[in-house]
Design a binder for these strands. Structure first.
Lengths: 146, 146
DNA sequence: TTATCTGCAAAGCCTTTGCACTTAG
DNA sequence: CTAAGTGCAAAGGCTTTGCAGATAA
């Protein structure tokens, strides 16, 4: 597997862009956290060590990383998007509790294959996907009502 | 199948709320369009016949309809959410072109079943889901690069 | 009558952008 | 040296909210 930092570097060179310390910091933090972070959460983590980095740079970098395919955006109903590192061999989707917000990663090669088949049927070249299941987790299901 | 308007009515009574002409108009337009509308698109359609309805009411009604389960929100990467009527027996997901925004509805009972199984495994009670495949449609794939 | 609903406009969030400065190549 | 990157603050979208008037039950 190719390292995210290498991928970023490669892309930057190919596009005639310049590397920057900030982008490396941002990507490194994302790799370290390995979680589904909102931009704000990511920004807070980054500020601890690098308070000089601005949130505009975080947004710009996140978009760049998504374009390259190193990071994926999770669009979530009634909430801001979350972002996560896409390490290959780590295809997964999400199960979210609509009550408490709990996040569970799920894996299904069966669904992966079916997706590819469907996209192919329609002549699409798949670049990404979002699959989020919403429901009530065991704890929240216990509560009488809402 | 239960009619959306009846469902709304029933819910309103159960919760001790009041019915309103505006909500009926909004739901009726959604049923007629049967499309994946943004709030703004929906608002424009509504204004043609009922210019007095405000956008705040459209937002409030959409949320109510989503809570009841008559309407579903489609959270989409890099774009505002779209909403669609959930007619039962019409379970489907979406394939979106990242280049031109084209929307294709897809159906897969295989994926539906797998989702239910996964949620069950984790003890979740499924209420909803979003499954969006992103890619390049046949037309946009022809373009040399971007 | 009275709690809900509505329209309006203001306020709030989150995200993007313009600009002057900095920096990699 | 020059184009790309950055931080800041302002501007922009989209969505929510406070409030006074309207309305269903």
């Amino acid at each position: 597997m190719e390292e995210p930092l290498e991928l970023l570097n490669k892309h930057v060179k190919e596009k005639g862009l310049k590397s920057s310390a900030q982008r490396n910091v941002i990507l490194t933090v994302m790799m370290k956290e390995k979680k589904h972070l909102t931009v704000d959460e990511l920004y807070s983590l980054i500020k601890k060590e690098n308070p000089e980095i601005g949130i505009a740079t975080v947004y710009r970098t996140i978009h760049l990383l998504c374009d390259i395919g190193i990071v994926r955006e999770l669009a979530i109903s009634n909430a801001v998007s979350r972002y996560e590192i896409l390490a290959d061999g780590n295809h997964h989707d999400h199960l979210v509790c609509v009550s408490c917000g709990k996040f569970v990663e799920i894996v299904s090669s069966l669904i992966e294959k079916e997706q590819a088949k469907i996209a192919h049927t329609h002549g699409f070249i798949l670049t990404n996907h979002t699959h989020v299941l919403y429901g009530r987790c065991p704890e929240c299901s216990k509560e009488v009502s809402r």
